[in-house]
Simulated assay, not measured.
Amino acid sequence: MKTAIVIPARYASTRYPGKPLAELTLPDGSRKSLIQLTWEAAQAVAGDHPVLVASDDDRIRTAAERFGAEVVMTPETCRNGTERCAAAVEAAGLDADVIVNLQGDAPLTPPWFIEALIDEMARGRARVATPVLRCDAVTYGHFVEDRKAGRVGGTTAVFGTDRSALYFSKEVIPWLDPAKIDPDNIPVFHHVGVYAYTRDALSAYGTLPEGTLERLEGLEQLRFLENGWPVTCVEVDARGRVFWELNNPGDVARIESVL
Score class of each variant (00 low, 15 high):
Glu214Phe: 08
Ala86Lys: 10
Pro249Glu: 06
Glu220Tyr: 08
Val98Lys: 06
Ala86Arg: 15
Gly154Pro: 02
Asp237Thr: 13
His190Trp: 14
Gln43Asp: 05
Val231Cys: 05
Trp244Pro: 00
Leu26Pro: 06
Arg215Cys: 01
Tyr16Leu: 02
Pro178Tyr: 14
Ala54Asp: 07
Ala69Asn: 02
Val252Glu: 02
Lys170His: 15
Val71Arg: 07
Phe189Asp: 08
Val252Pro: 02
Val89Trp: 11
Thr62Val: 13
Ala238Ser: 15
Ala129Gln: 07
Leu202His: 04
Val51Phe: 05
Thr207Gly: 09
Asp119His: 10
Ile181Glu: 11
Val51Arg: 04
Leu26Thr: 00
Pro178Thr: 05
Ala201Ser: 09
Asp57Leu: 07
Glu256Gly: 01
Cys135Met: 15
Val89Gly: 04
Leu202Phe: 06
Asp48Tyr: 11
Gly104Val: 01
Lys148Asp: 00
Pro131His: 13
Ile181Trp: 15
Thr82Glu: 06
Gly68Tyr: 10
Glu115His: 05
Gly206His: 13
Val152Gln: 03
Gln103Tyr: 01
Leu259Phe: 13
Ala204Pro: 00
Cys85Phe: 08
Ala88Pro: 05
Phe189Ala: 14
Gln36Thr: 04
Ile173Asn: 04
Gln36Ser: 10
Gly160Ile: 05
Leu37Cys: 11
Ala137Asp: 07
Tyr16Asn: 00
Val45Gln: 07
Asp146Cys: 06
Gly29Ile: 12
Gly193Ser: 15
Cys135Phe: 13
Leu216Cys: 01
Met121Trp: 14
Ile60Gln: 03
Arg31Met: 14
Asp97Glu: 11
Asn248Ala: 12
Val72Leu: 07
Ala64Tyr: 07
Thr109Lys: 01
Tyr167Gln: 13
Asp184Phe: 15
Gly104His: 06
Ala201Glu: 04
Gln36Gly: 05
Lys148Leu: 13
Ala96Pro: 01
Trp39Glu: 02
Thr62Pro: 00
Glu220Lys: 06
Asp105His: 12
Leu246Ile: 11
Gly250Leu: 12
Leu216Arg: 15
Gly18Tyr: 12
Thr38Lys: 15
Glu40Ser: 06
Arg215Thr: 11
Asp95Ser: 08
Gln36Leu: 09
Arg15Ala: 05
Lys180Trp: 12
Glu90Val: 10
Pro187His: 14
Arg215Glu: 08
Ala91Thr: 07
Tyr11Trp: 05
Ile114Asp: 04
Ile7Asn: 02
Lys2Cys: 01
Ile186Tyr: 12
Met73His: 06
Asp237Ser: 13
Ala86Ser: 14
Tyr197Leu: 08
Asn101Glu: 04
